[in-house]
């Protein structure tokens, strides 16, 4: 059985907007001036950029992972929410619910949930903890979780776009610094020849 977590205030592992301003990749207006910032010149500049680039890549893969987790989580919470709502409905009608539950992989057995029992549900919170909630509380919690998950997914999407931009900018910058260096060397070689 999968242990999909639905913790109360787990932000879903997304770095919620934290990456915004302080991480933004810098666009180099003037390559010569940029290189001049590094005491050891081009090599140090390229090294620095390479390490920033790797950080961005790491961030990107983390974002992809948490995105996959959220994509799994959202439909799961939606299903659970629909289930609880159905139970509440049955409870209000005062009728028992007959269900086929998954006994093991691919095998289903029949069970009865009385209207009285439908008042309380147990939600799996993750980390081997399940809690009992009244149906109303469960609806509230799940709705909140669903909202949080969707919000996180949105933040995640924005963050991913941002990181993607940074990656492109850094790639372009690295190429420009490198090309500038090649050009400089060529020029120097020409001068010494003359």
């Amino acid at each position: 059985m999968s242990s999909t977590s639905m913790s109360v205030d787990n932000p879903g592992g997304a770095s919620s907007g934290a990456s915004s301003s302080k991480m933004e990749a810098e666009y180099i207006e003037d390559v010569a001036a940029y290189i001049a910032r590094f005491p050891k010149g081009t090599e140090e500049a390229l090294q620095t950029m390479q390490s920033t680039y790797q950080q961005y890549k790491l961030l990107e893969s983390r974002l992809t992972q948490s995105r996959q987790r959220l994509m799994m989580k959202v439909p799961d919470v939606e299903r659970t929410l629909a289930c609880v709502k159905k139970l509440v409905q049955r409870k209000d009608e005062g009728s028992d619910t007959h269900v086929d539950f998954e006994l093991t992989d691919g095998i289903f057995a029949k069970a009865k949930v009385s209207a009285e029992n439908a008042q309380k549900v147990f939600l799996w919170l993750g980390a081997n903890v399940a809690l009992e909630y009244t149906a109303e509380e469960a609806v509230e919690l799940l709705t909140k979780n669903l909202e949080t998950a969707k919000l996180n997914l949105d933040t995640n999407r924005k963050d991913a776009l941002f990181v993607k931009d940074c990656i492109t900018t850094t790639e372009v910058s690295m190429a420009r610094v490198y090309n500038y260096d090649v050009q400089q060397r060529k020029q120097k070689a020409m001068e010494t020849k003359e």
Partner: peptide, 25 residues
Amino acid sequence: EMLVPLTSSMYVRGSLEETSKILVD
């Protein structure tokens, strides 16, 4: 008496109704 798993993360109290027949996927 048992906890019926309705989804992978939600359980509710219930009772076994039928122990002679099952559904096979």
